[in-house]
Design a protein around this nucleic acid. Structure first.
Length: 259
DNA sequence: ATGTCTACTGATAGTAGA
């Protein structure tokens, strides 16, 4: 089974590109972030053609998350309790024997911006929700765009980035709290030494300069980790495909054995 | 190089957000 996460930066603008990737990689379950689409505008029919059912938590213009799956899925959560004011950023479904949750964590903008503290608070709410709702012995996935660089090695700037937005100790502590709840960074677990990024700024030729950050992650419980065969950051799909413009994020996927 | 891309607007170019 192949599970994936991808911040697509606008579903309407990315639909053809996304469908190209679905046809090429054939994932079974996909968490999508930054739909920027109202639920009423969600193109369910287009995904049905490719064999996917979608469950959506969207809003106009900003944010928005969804889960695509080949099999039946049942939504158990839309939105992070108490954090609705920050937008549609979380959806959880039971699918293929997994509790699969995808999140679009707040960006924070700058350290001086009020949104930075809101980001930290949002993470605390996420950890509290997770601690309350998710038993560590179940097969659970928490994936998405965390907008946090977990370690210096996950930034093109290395330790020189420490203290900048996405790279602060407080953000890293919030991310580490999720790991302390029994979640494992599946890419880092599979590739302890690998240096790979999942996001590159559109500006300044960042992709070609290698100026990226690893901020998109599949976190899994131990029951998921022990089934991992491979984890891939699919950087070919950060490139232009013909005339189709990529997202600023690459997809990340993991292949799991059946048991 | 903050050099791009997306979606919004009493729109049709300019702004905000990332």
């Amino acid at each position: 089974m192949r599970i994936a996460t991808w911040n697509i930066n606008g579903l309407k603008a990315r639909l053809d590109y996304l469908c190209l990737w679905l046809a090429e990689r054939r994932p079974d379950v996909v968490g999508l972030q930054e739909l920027k689409t109202e639920d009423a505008q969600f193109p369910h029919a287009r995904f049905a053609e490719l064999g996917y059912v979608a469950h959506v938590h969207g809003e106009k213009a900003w944010n928005g998350v969804a889960v695509l799956s080949r099999g039946e899925a049942e939504v158990f959560q839309r939105g992070l309790p108490g954090q609705e004011a920050l937008g549609a950023r979380l959806i959880g479904v039971r699918v293929a024997g997994l509790d699969f949750t995808t999140v679009y964590c707040p960006n924070g903008k700058t350290l001086a911006h009020v949104d930075y503290q809101r980001k930290l608070d949002w993470f605390e709410a996420l950890a509290a929700y997770w601690a309350e709702r998710h038993a560590p012995d179940r097969a659970t996935v928490l994936c998405g765009d965390f907008n946090v660089v977990p370690h210096a090695t996950d930034s093109w700037r290395g330790a020189d980035g420490d203290g900048e937005i996405f790279h602060t100790t407080l953000e890293r502590e919030r991310f580490a709290t999720l790991l302390a709840l029994g979640l494992i960074d599946l890419y880092r677990d599979r590739h302890p030494e690998g240096r790979a990024y999942s996001w590159w700024d559109y500006r300044g030729g960042s992709f070609h300069r290698g100026h990226g950050l690893r901020i998109d992650t599949l976190l899994g419980s131990e029951a998921v980790r022990r089934r991992v065969v491979e984890v891939v950051i699919d950087r070919d799909f950060r490139k232009k495909q013909g005339e189709l413009t990529p997202s600023d994020h690459a997809p990340v996927y993991a292949d799991l054995s059946d048991r």
